[in-house]
Design a protein around this nucleic acid. Sequence first.
RNA 1: GCAGGGGUGGCGGAGCCUGGUCAAACGCGGCGGACUCAAGAUCCGCUGGCUUAGAGCCUGCGAGAGUUCAAUAUUGAAUAAAUCUCUCCCCCUGCACCA
Length: 911
Amino acid sequence: MDFYEIEEKWNNEWLNAKIFEAEPNDKKPFMIVFAFPYVNSPFHMGHAYTYSIADTVARYKRMQGYNVLFPAGFHATGTPILSFAKRIKAGDKGLIDEFKNIFNIPDEDIKKMIDPLFLANYFIEIDRRAFKDLGFSIDFRREFVSIDQKFSKFVEWQFDKLNEAGLLTKGLHWVGWCPNENNAVSMHDTSGDKEPEIEEITGIKFKVKDRDFSFLCATFRPETLFGVTNLFINKNAKYVICTIENEKVCISEEASKRLSYQFDIRDTQTISNDELLTLKAINPINNSEVPILHASFVDPKNGTGVVMSVPAHAPFDYYALYEENKRYDIKPIKVLEINNYEIPAKKYIEMVDEEDINKKLEIATEKEYKEEAHKGIFSIEPYKGLNESEVREKIKEDLEKSNNAIPIYIIENAPIYCRCGAEVVVKKISDQWFLDYGNQEWKKIAKELLDKMQVLPESARKDLEYTINWLHERAVVRAEGLGTKFPLDNKYIIESLSDSTIYPIFYTFSHLLKDVKPEQLTKSFFDFVILNIGNIDQVSKETGIDYNIIKKSKEEFEYWYKNSYNSSGYDLVYNHLTMYIFNHAIIFKDKREYWPKGIIANGLVLYDGQKMSKSLGNIIPALDIRKKFGADPTRLALIYSSNVDSNPNFELNNLKGIIERLSYIENVIDNIQNYNNTEIKNIDYWLYSKLAKKIKNATNEMEKLLTRDYVLDVLFNTIDELKRYFDRGGSNPLVLNEYISKVLLLMQPIAPHIAEELWHRIGNETFVSLEKWPAIDESMINDKLEKSEEAIDLFIDDVKSIRDMLKRKNREIKKLKIIIASKEKREKVKEYFENRLDDKNIKEAIEKRKDRLDLLRDNDISQDDEIAIFNDAKDYISKKIGVEVYIEREEESKSEKRIRSLPLIPSFELE
RNA sequence: GCAGGGGUGGCGGAGCCUGGUCAAACGCGGCGGACUCAAGAUCCGCUGGCUUAGAGCCUGCGAGAGUUCAAUAUUGAAUAAAUCUCUCCCCCUGCACCA
C-alpha cells in the first residue's frame, strides 16, 4: 500500500473540493480548536497527538451531522522567537546543531534565521505543510498568526474589556534580569535553560553601637534571631556603607551592586574590614550586643555578604565560631527544641560522615533545616511551644513593621547565567501590570463556566478547579518580546499566554477581514460583532468597513461560538486552559450562550517509553514519521498509544502491525469479486452481529475519547473477525461489502486517507469524510449465534490440550468423535439453572465447567441445533485439529466419555 | 513542603469505579511450525511453572496488614481481592508570570 501516493491524492481532492471550508448553515454547529503551535521549531509527535485527537473529533462530529469548524493558526508572540534569533546571531552551537540534526534545516536557512520573522515564517511554512500532509480537516482560510496586526487589535479590545471590568491592576513585581543586556530573562534566555526561581528572604538590620549605620543580614530563618551570638563577614571581601531606602547599611560591595536592581542605593562608600571587625552590633529582637567576626564560608555574592550567626542551629555558624575562630567564650543559644539535642548544629555535624568539610556542613545544614522546620518546637518566650514556621511568620511581620527588617529577593537556584554570560540578578519592577485572577467574583463565574462544560477526560476537571482556585494576580506585560502593545502603557508588550486566551473567537471571522486594515478594527467593531453592542450602520460608518463584512462576521461568530471546544495538551491545564476559562467567563458574563462547551486535555507523549527531550535527541518532528510510515499509520499509532486519560507511549514497533492490518483490509477489498456465495449462512449473520456491536462500541468509545479502545475495535478486531469469517467459510460478497463499508465509515475519523481511498475502491463516489455515522442495527445483534461460535472455539481449545498431551506421549491420532449432550441432560441442566433440580451429578458436572458457565446458562439451543452448529463447523474443526471429525448423539454414543457432555460443551474422544 | 496521578507477566498497556467468570484483554517482543534455494513478508501455534484425557496444583498484579460478597465448608469455625479499607515504600506531573 503506497500511503504517500494515497495521501497526496486525497489531500488534494479534499482541498480542491473545499469540503472542510465551513460556512454557517442550518445544521448544529461544532467548533473545535487546538492550542496553536508555537513557531520556534517544527511541531513534534507530542503536538501531532493533540492535533490528531482534535481532527478525529472534528471528523467524528461531522459524521454525526454537525456542521464542523476546525481552524488552525500559529503562535509567535513573546520572547522565544526573538531569543532564538538572537542565539543564532550569536552563533549558539547548541541551537544550531539542534536545528541541523533534529530538524534537518539547511545551513543557508539557519543563517537567515537571525531575522526573527524569517524564523517564524519558516516554521509556519513547515507546520502548515504538516497540517495538510497529516490530513487534518482544517479550514485553512481562517489561519492567522498571533503577531498579525489585526489580531493585535482584537487583543487590545480584549484588554479594554478586562480593564473596564476593573481586573487590571498595577503593582510591584520581581523578575530575573540580565544586568548586561538590561532585560528580563526567562528560561529560554539562560544558559542551560534554567528558569530563574525567585525567592523572598528577610534582610535584618543590626544597628551598630555608637555608629550611624546598621549591618544588613539576609536570612531564611528570621526566627533564629533569638539565637544570634555574633555576625560574620568575610575579611577577604570588600564591604561598603550605602543608603538603602534612606537608611545607611553595611553590606558587601557585590551585594550593593546586585541589590541596586531591587532598591534605590545611594552614597556608597567603602569601609575597611579591620574597622568592621572591631564593631559591635545590636540584635533588634533583644538589644543584646554581638561582636563581628570573620568566617571564610561567607560569600560576598550571597545575600548581603553579612551573615547573622546562630551556632546552635546552623552547622556553618557553629563550625566558623568554634573551629575557625576558637571563640569558646561565646555560648550557643538554643531557640528550638529538636530531638532533645543539646546543641542541634553540633549534633547534625557529627551525624554526617563526609571528608570534605564544606560538603559535610552543607549536608548537615540541609538535614537540620528540614527536620527543624518539620518538628522543631520553639523554646523561647513569648513563642514557646509553637512550631518553627508559625514563629517565622510572626517575627518576620513584627520586624518589618518596626522597620528592623526588609524583604530581599534572591535567585533561589543561583547562579544562573544569561546566554550573554552575565549572572542573572533580581530586578524589581515597580509599575508591573497584573490581571487579577485572584478576584473572587471572577473566580466564581469561572467556576460556573467550568461546571457547565464538558471536560475530557473528566479527571482533568479537578485540576482545572484547583488551578482556578489558586491562580492570583498574574503579570501580563513584559518589556520585551513580540506581540501586542499594552493599551494602558505602550512601553510594554502583552505577555504571550495572556494574549491567547479567547483567541478562538478570531477564527470565526478572520477570513472575512482580508481587505480590512488593522486600524479599522476598532473597539466598536468587536463590540458589535462579539457582544452585539451598538448598531451596524454606525459601526460601518465609523470604521469604514463594508456593511456586509460586519454583518457576516457577526453571523459567523454567533453561529460558531454557540458550541466550541478546545483541545490541548495536559500541561496547559495549569495555565492556558484555566485562563481560557477565566477570560471567556468574564467577557461573556452576560452572554453565557457563548461560553465554551468543552475542553479536551490529552497526556504527555512518551517516545518508546522515554520522555521526548532535546538532551536525549529523541524529539521527532511529526513530518519525519509521516514521511517514513505514512500519515494514517502515524495518526493511528499515536491515538492507539493510549486513551485520552493517560500518557500515550508512541512505539515505532506498533507501526508495523498497523500497516499490516491496513493492508489486509485493502487486500480483502481488492479481492472481493472473488467471493461469490449468494446464500446467507450462520457465519454471515455472525459477522453482521459483530458489526452491529462494533458500531455500538465505537460510538461509545468516541464519545469518551477512548481512542485506544476505538482502534482496537475498529481496526484490530476487524481483522480478527474477517479472518474468522473466511476461516469458517464465509464468502458472501454482499455481506463483506456491507461489513467493510461500515468499517470504513468507522475508520474515517482515525485513518481518513485510507478510508477515503478504500471507500472509493469499493465503488462509492462520495467522500467518506462527509458520510453519515453508521446507525446501530440492534436487531442484527445475535448473542445466540456468537455464543455458538464461541462454543466452537472453546471446544477446539479443549481438544487441543488433549491432543497435545497425547502427542507428547507419542500416541497417534486419526479421528475426533464429538458427542453432543443428550436431550435428557439438556433438560436437566436447564432445570438446574432454574433452581428446579437438585441432582448431584449434574451439579458436579456443571461445577467442573464453571469456566464455561456463560455457555451453559440461559442456553436454549436444542440438540438438533447444536448438531447443526458443529456440523457446520466440521471442516473448520478438522482443519484446526488436523484429524477427521465425526459427530454423534450422546444417546447413541458408545464412548465412555459421553457422560461428560454438556449443552454447547460436547464431550469428545480422540483415537 | 503542598496538590494531583501512578506502581499489573520480557516490554507497552487493559482490568480496579460496579469483588467471583483473571494466569490476567490487546499489542509488541520471543520461541516453534508451514511456505521459500534462502532471507523478508505472510499464515498457524506456543509464550509463569509443574503436571494432566478435557483436570489439578504452585507462584503471581510495589510491600505489609485488614475487611468481606459470591462460593466451598461448618459446631453461626475456617478459607476467601489486581478489584474494598488502612499504613509504608517508590515513581511521575504541577506549584506560574514561561511557551
